[in-house]
Structure formats: structure tokens, C-alpha cells
Computed example of a mutant assay.
Amino acid sequence: MNKIESLEQFISSIPAFKTAVPVDLSIAVCDLEKFVAYFPGDNINLNIKIGQKFQPGEPLVIALKENKRLQAEVPAEFYGFEFTGTALPLRNNQGKVIGGIAVQHRKQTELRQVSERILNSLIQADEQISTITNSSNSLVDVASHLLQQSELADKSVKQTSEVLSIIKRVADQTNLLGLNAAIEAARAGEKGKGFEVVANEIRKFSKETVESTQQIKDTLAQIQDVTKQMGEAIAQISAVGQEQAASVQQVSHFVKDIHELSNELNKLATKL
């Protein structure tokens, strides 16, 4: 496969070969002493000059001396980028080595690096999303607990209001009883004076009880109104927290999908 008529004829066919191959290649052709042709790629150029002598230990020199194909991975520190280099001796029809060809294919290191950065970013994003998800779930739990406490507070206020209603009825009855006692004391004349004083104190106490009960009832009504508003607000917070948790969960699924695609991209970049 590496027998040719002449180096000149072989060199003349390289432009057509580069056009036909859907890979960006850098191709150098040499005789037994120096480079006689060089065709840089679009993204890989080793700046080889026509007539440039070989460097000691260069793979192409070894391939010519040992009359065999060589392939090596050249690190970025030599030319600023990684590439795969292949050196192949060229023989004439008599089987004599008359030169060689060196083909360089740039490795897609940048693509792999970008893929790795995407992968690392996705890992960090996934960790942050997990944190947000946990916080959202905690928020929902706290809101649910507060809503339960708000409902208990509202229930307690209603029970207290019922107790106050009973106290008011007792006070009303006591006031009526005091009024009747005052009337009977007036009928008794001088003998009922002392009892009249007690009846008046009972009426006064019952009146104060009714007034205090009404004040407490008004205060409880205000507390009940505030508690109701708090319950509604907590319910909204709980609903928002649940929606947020669901949205974050959905984003987490998207991140996992992108994570898998990034892994596939990284594998593909490694193979290039």
C-alpha cells in the first residue's frame, strides 16, 4: 500500500486526498534527508518548511531507518496542542525506501476540556439543586406544622369565646338576681338596708363582669381574625413551597439528562 511511482507523483495527489477525507489533517512528505512538501490543516499547522532537515529522534527518521509504520501521541507542550502523529516510509516499485509521509491529526482536547467543565458544572448544579430541594421540603413541612398550629389556635379561640358567652349569661343572671334582691330589700324597709348594700355590690360586680367579658370577646375576635389571615398566608406559603419543590425536582431531572449527555460527549471527545 505504501509503494509509489515517485515522490513528485505522490505529492501531486495529496491535495485531492485532503479534500476527499472529512478530517482535518496536516501532511508532510520527505525524501531521505529533508521535507519536500507540507500541507497544513485548517486547525493544525506545524510550520514545516520545504527543505527543512530532520530533527534527531524524530518519528519520521525512525520510520525511515526501521522501515516500519510508527504512531505516537504528541503532547501539547511541543506545539501548543495535542495531536496524533503517524509516520510511514514510502517505497518505489522495487521496494526501496525513497522517502516518507508524516500525517498529523489534532486531538479534540478542547472539546474534551469543555465537556469536562460542563460535567463539573452540572455536578455542582446538581448538588445545589439537592440542597434547594431539601430546603423546599423543609419549608413545606414547617408551613404545614404552622398551619396545624394556626388551626388549633383558631379552635381554642372559638372554645374560649364559648366560655365567655357562658360567663356573660351567668353575669346577666347575677345582675337580674341582684336587681330582684334590691327590690325585696326596699320592700323590707330598714330591716333590708344591709341586704340592699350587698345586692347593689352584686349588681355592680355582674355589670363589670359583663363589660370585661365583652372586652375579652372583642380581643378574641381580633385574634381570631389575625389567626385566620395567618392561616391563609401559611397555606399560600405551603402551596408555593410544594410548587417550588416540584419545579426543582423537574429541573433536577433535566440536569441529570444533561449530565448523561455530557458523559456521552466526553466519551466521544476522548475517542476523537
Rank of each mutant, 00 (worst) to 15 (best):
L88C: 05
D172L: 12
N93E: 14
D218M: 12
I166K: 15
L70G: 02
L111R: 11
T133H: 13
N120F: 14
V210N: 12
T209N: 03
I118Q: 03
E264R: 14
N180V: 09
Q224T: 02
L146H: 11
K34P: 08
K193M: 10
S13A: 05
V103D: 00
E66P: 04
A125Y: 05
G99K: 03
P56A: 06
S115C: 06
D257L: 00
S13Q: 10
S150I: 12
Q9G: 04
Q104P: 00
K68T: 06
E58K: 15
S206R: 05
A102D: 06
F17Y: 11
P40A: 00
E184H: 13
K207G: 08
S212P: 00
L164I: 06
L146R: 05
A63Q: 00
E264C: 07
G178Q: 01
K191D: 02
A102M: 05
N120H: 11
L119K: 10
F35V: 08
E66D: 01
N93P: 01
S252A: 08
E116L: 14
R169Q: 09
A181Y: 05
A171N: 08
S161T: 08
A239E: 08
V197W: 04
L60C: 02
D218E: 09
I27G: 01
T219L: 15
Q214K: 10
S161Y: 00
I50D: 14
G194R: 05
R169W: 01
N43Q: 04
K96Q: 11
R112N: 06
D42A: 15
Y38I: 07
A188D: 03
S165N: 11
N43I: 01
E127M: 11
F83P: 00
F78D: 14
D225R: 13
F78W: 11
E264L: 09
V226Y: 13
E33N: 08
Q222D: 13
K228Q: 12
Q124S: 14
K34F: 06
A233G: 10
F205E: 00
G194I: 02
K193W: 11
Q224N: 09
V255F: 12
K191I: 02
K207N: 13
I132K: 06
G80I: 07
R112Q: 10
E33M: 00
Q104S: 03
K193C: 13
I183Y: 08
A37G: 01
S121Y: 14
V157N: 11
I14C: 01
F10D: 03
V248C: 03
Q52A: 09
L176A: 15
A233Q: 15
N137P: 06
V240E: 01
S144Y: 14
N2Q: 08
F83D: 03
I4S: 03
L88V: 10
N120C: 06
V157M: 09
E243G: 00
D42F: 08
Q236G: 10
F17L: 00
K204R: 15
K267R: 15
I223Y: 10
S115K: 00
V157D: 10
I14R: 06
G189L: 02
S150C: 11
E8V: 11
T131Q: 07
Q244D: 11
N67K: 14
A20P: 04
A171R: 10
R187H: 07
R69S: 15
K256S: 06
Q236Y: 07
I123P: 08
A269W: 14
T213L: 04
V97Y: 00
G178H: 03
V36C: 01
G95S: 00
I166V: 15
